[in-house]
């Protein structure tokens, strides 16, 4: 598949959404709503669940499958309240020593008057800062689209995994083609240039794991994720909090290529 074909695959209508992963992988999911500041944001769902008996906090962006669901979920584009709810649940997880698992799937943080009025930039910035020093293990899994800062706000994690046909980019190929090259037709070239596929990102060291996708049905993906998450969390729960935070800092500290002259 070319990079642009992967972009299309990551957005495919029949792709499982975030909540489908939660329901398939975890038991006893109890959804918790609201940011306790302003509103409930249905683009992000979160709550407590069990992963093989271990209580965990799960947070998932959800785009919805049907038109009605898509509208209800704001097409998976969170407002500031979504990020604030996620942070509230993460802080709660820290208090009760539960690991955090995030499922990322968004074309980006919502662009709208309300989102700006209520501090979209600040909401993302606060998540970046606070996730960096969260005292419990955090794993983020990209299941579809990973649109820029809006995706990163749930991905300051100890490990980042990506589905084989998911994407993660600083800007959408459409945005890049029209802003940078003023030519919306160059979208394929933009997708190629941005290095946004799971395979490219693994090479760049931005993600730890690629999760293979079967041709049909995601049952095997859920099974694989369940066992991988159990392994990874049982490993990271043994690491003292201070060391965990240090490692997370170093994970992001190393990104950047430049000359020193």
């Amino acid at each position: 598949m070319s990079a642009f074909e992967k972009v299309l695959a990551s957005r495919a209508k029949d792709r499982p959404t975030g909540l489908a992963y939660i329901i398939a992988i975890f038991d006893d999911f109890i959804e918790l709503h609201g940011d306790r500041r302003f509103a409930e944001d249905t683009a992000i769902a979160g709550g407590i669940a069990r992963l093989n008996d271990m209580p965990v906090t799960v947070i998932a962006m959800d785009k919805g499958n049907t038109t009605k669901e898509k509208i209800y979920r704001n097409f998976g584009s969170p407002n500031p309240e979504g990020y604030r709810k996620a942070l509230r649940l993460m802080k709660q997880a820290e208090k009760f020593r539960r690991p955090v698992i995030c499922f990322v799937d968004t074309s980006g943080a919502f662009c709208g008057i309300g989102a700006e009025e209520r501090g979209q930039g600040l909401a993302i910035a606060e998540n970046l800062m606070e996730m960096m020093t969260l005292k419990v293990p955090v794993i983020s899994i990209f299941i579809g689209e990973g649109g820029s800062g809006g995706a990163l706000a749930l991905a300051v994690a100890d490990e980042v995994w990506m589905l084989e046909n998911a994407m993660y980019s600083v800007i959408s190929p459409e945005g890049c083609a029209s802003i940078l090259w003023k030519d919306p037709k160059k979208v394929k070239e933009a997708a190629e240039s941005l290095k946004l596929t799971a395979q490219d990102l693994k090479k760049l060291g931005v993600i730890e794991e690629i999760i293979a996708e079967p041709k049909k049905g995601f049952e095997s993906v859920y099974k694989l994720l369940e066992s991988k998450l159990t392994d990874a969390l049982s490993r990271s729960l043994k690491i003292p909090a201070e060391e965990l935070i240090c490692k997370r800092y170093e994970r992001f500290r190393k990104f950047g290529v430049f000359k020193e002259i």
């Binding site: 970046l128 020093t133 600083v170």
Partner: peptide, 26 residues
């Protein structure tokens, strides 16, 4: 904003700088 020409590595700078601000703040 983030520099498109460096792709995802630019996006990572947001997390990297935020981490350093947090340490300074803490």
């Amino acid at each position: 904003g983030a520099r498109m020409q460096e792709g995802i590595i630019s996006l990572m700078q947001m997390a990297k700088t935020s981490g350093a601000v947090k340490r300074h703040s803490d």
